[in-house]
């Protein structure tokens, strides 16, 4: 996914679980329905917890790519 398609990117590098998901939960409302929010997180738990958050909160998990510095980036489309 290109940078242009991401409406908001959260820098959660260095944060331990559950902080990346807490930031995701707090800020999903800042993107419009249909837009994509990206979470850049180095904590390995985010790989499981971001998709699980999407499932529990009824949002769409788009997938994983990498930020410019190579950190994992998790993409979430706001669907409600």
């Amino acid at each position: 996914m290109s940078a242009a398609d991401v409406a908001l990117e959260l820098d959660c590098r260095g944060m331990l679980c559950p902080l990346p998901v807490i930031h995701l939960g707090r800020r999903i409302g800042e993107v419009a329905v249909g837009e994509v929010l990206a979470v850049v997180a180095t904590d390995v738990a985010a790989r499981t917890d971001v998709p699980a958050w999407c499932r529990m909160r009824g949002q769409e998990y788009v997938g994983e790519d990498t930020a410019l510095d190579g950190s994992p980036r998790y993409l979430v489309r706001r669907s409600s």
Partner: peptide, 24 residues
Amino acid sequence: GSACTASTLEPSHVLAAMGVLTHG
């Protein structure tokens, strides 16, 4: 099974394999 409670700082491989929330 949350990572912060494990000595390894890795979340439970069981919860991760199931695709369920590993924190809390």
